[in-house]
């Protein structure tokens, strides 16, 4: 893929990446991190699966966001060490409206939030999410199913608490 092809392929995904980052990092960091994502994408362009350019970019973005958060956590020392997936957005990150479902989402593990965010907010298909996560469709489907179940359970708990 030469420079012209690269630009032609990835130009249309600029805003998707901007939205992805906006949901996960401070606004002031979006541009810098987007640059980093496209730098990596350019270096690794040969490994980009054809037809899955956006999920592939999200995969890179996930690593970039994780590294960014790691750097922040080294400074602030506030991120739990075992938080394996530092790229998952919180309810606050995705600007949820404070409703019961927002709270239910926030109570999920980072892993559940990550997979649900890719489906609901990034609007990816299961196949595309599998590319982002580097796993199979079957595994992705199972993860989504369980994350969705846990979200539903949290939501139910939230609603019953509200009623009480």
């Amino acid at each position: 893929m030469d420079q012209v092809q690269f630009v032609a392929t990835f130009r249309s995904h600029l805003q998707d990446i901007s939205k992805y980052l906006t949901r996960r990092v401070e606004l002031s960091q979006v541009e810098d991190l987007a640059s980093e994502i496209f730098e990596i994408a350019w270096r690794k362009r040969e490994s980009c699966p054809e037809g899955f350019e956006l999920p592939w970019l999200y995969k890179i973005a996930g690593f970039v966001v994780s590294n960014h958060r790691k750097k922040l956590s080294r400074r602030a020392a506030t991120v739990p060490l075992l938080d394996h997936d530092r790229s998952a957005p919180s309810a606050e990150d995705v600007a949820l409206d404070g409703s019961a479902v927002a709270q239910a989402f926030d109570e999920l593990s980072a892993k559940d939030r990550q997979v649900l965010a890719l489906l609901v907010f990034e609007q990816l298909s299961i196949k595309e999410i599998a590319v982002v996560l580097g796993t199979t469709e079957n595994n992705t489907s199972q993860r989504l199913k369980r994350a969705r179940e846990r979200l539903a359970k949290n939501l139910k708990d939230q609603l019953s608490e509200t009623r009480d």
Binding site: F6, V7, F10, R11, L14, Q15, I17, S18, K19, L21, T22, R23, L27, V30, E31, A34, S35, F38, W42, V94, A95, L96, D97, S99, V101, A102, F105, L116, V120, F121, L151
Partner: peptide, 18 residues
Amino acid sequence: LSKAARKTKAPKLDESII
């Protein structure tokens, strides 16, 4: 969950980034 998300005001990124 989808409805609960407010519209994201993502900054417009320029092609010069690429």
